[in-house]
């Protein structure tokens, strides 16, 4: 197989077609419920749309990966079972799972179904990844965004499955699948409900002095001057005070995007089979632009040419970008 397969976000049927047309090797998407980690209003697929999406992608040589990457709370498992059954019926190429119960149920009910391990499973060591491979026949692991490229290369030599890494988009700071910050502030769980900073709990509050407070539930996540653009309130991108920092500071991380455009050849050399672009909540125009740019870059690298980085760098223009943990251990 080729290294550097492009895995692209499809938050809607229109985005799926856009991503496929722009050169995605595969798209990932979910149903309109808690079975996937982007359970946002206006996103995702009805069963009919999923069936049509799979047909559209397959007719053009692209794969469809079904995100079933949340953790069913006891008593609600049936929803995940039904989603998996639908996925099998529609012929999705792989299911992206995080919960051991979900993986085990699919493995038993559908032994031939290809499974990928979601980043939400937080498997970051060879032993953890091998455990999932041995128990559930996982064929590919989506790595947490916490390893350096040399660490990924060392890991690749020790595990019997493919590796997928995030290369572009929103940069989560917490270990995925182990974060209850949203639930602490709002009563909706990232793991069980598939939401992070749900829009229904977000408030942009104009203060008397003209400044803007962004809030999640009962908590102020950040404050902006009258002339500043207020960002979306995500707890791990907010500003807080602590005794040694009485000016507000980004306690976890600044609002910043991951962009590994310059590291694609290094990642391919390290043994990364697939590049994941984050952004099922993004517009079709964004998807077209990002997928086209990375398609051209990967094709250039495969042809032994220098990729045109300017287009990729421009994608985050106006917003700060980072190479996160991939570049150096000092990120930690």
């Amino acid at each position: 197989m080729k290294y550097g397969e492009l895995i692209c976000p499809a938050g809607t049927p229109a985005a799926l077609r856009t991503a496929v047309d722009a050169g995605a090797d595969a798209v990932y998407c979910g149903f309109q419920n808690a079975t996937n980690a982007r359970n946002f209003p206006g996103l995702n697929f009805t069963p009919d749309e999923m069936q049509e999406g799979v047909a559209y992608a397959h007719a053009r040589g692209a794969k469809v990966l079904l995100a079933l990457n949340t953790f069913p709370p006891a008593g609600k498992f049936g929803l995940w079972r039904e989603a998996a059954d639908l996925g099998v019926r529609f012929g999705v190429d792989a299911m992206i799972v995080a919960d051991m119960g979900v993986a085990d149920v699919i493995r038993n009910a559908h032994p031939d179904q290809r499974l990928h391990l979601s980043v939400q499973a937080a498997a970051s060591s060879p032993e953890a990844i091998c455990y999932y491979v041995e128990e559930f026949d996982i064929r590919r692991v989506v790595l947490p965004r916490i390893l350096t490229v040399p660490e990924i290369k060392a890991l690749a030599a020790e595990i019997p499955c493919e590796i997928e890494t995030f290369i572009f988009g929103n940069h989560g700071l917490m270990v995925e699948g182990r974060c209850s910050l949203t639930n602490y502030a709002t009563g909706l769980s990232t793991n069980m409900d598939g939401v992070c900073s749900p829009a229904g709990d977000v408030e942009y509050r104009r203060e008397a002095d003209g400044s803007m407070s962004t809030r999640l539930g009962a908590f102020t996540i950040d404050k902006f001057g009258a002339e500043e653009t207020a960002g979306y309130p995500t707890i791990c991108k907010g500003r807080y005070r602590t005794p040694c920092r009485d000016e507000g500071y980004y306690a976890f991380e600044e609002p910043i995007s991951l962009n590994l455009a310059r590291m694609l050849p290094d990642l391919m050399n390290a043994g990364v089979h697939a590049f994941k672009i984050e952004g099922r909540q993004r517009s079709r125009a964004y998807v077209r632009q990002v997928v086209s740019a990375f398609r051209a870059a990967v094709d250039a690298i495969r042809a032994g040419q220098e990729p045109l980085l300017a287009d990729l760098v421009a994608l985050t223009e106006g917003q700060k970008e980072t190479q996160g943990a991939f570049k150096t251990k000092t990120w930690r």
């Binding site: 953790f71 069913p72 709370p73 006891a74 008593g75 609600k76 498992f77 995080a98 919960d99 051991m100 119960g101 979900v102 085990d104 149920v105 499973a121 498997a123 060591s125 032993e127 953890a128 091998c130 455990y131 999932y132 041995e134 128990e135 699948g177 182990r178 793991n191 069980m192």
Partner: peptide
């Protein structure tokens, strides 16, 4: 999960970081 791999097949406990949210995971 690295610890789970080492402990498989012998009696052990599963801690709060292991994300046991449902009966199927517990049964497994």
């Amino acid at each position: 999960a690295a610890a789970l791999r080492h402990l498989a097949g012998q009696p052990h406990r599963v801690g709060p970081f292991m994300n046991v949210y449902n009966e199927e995971t517990m049964r497994f």
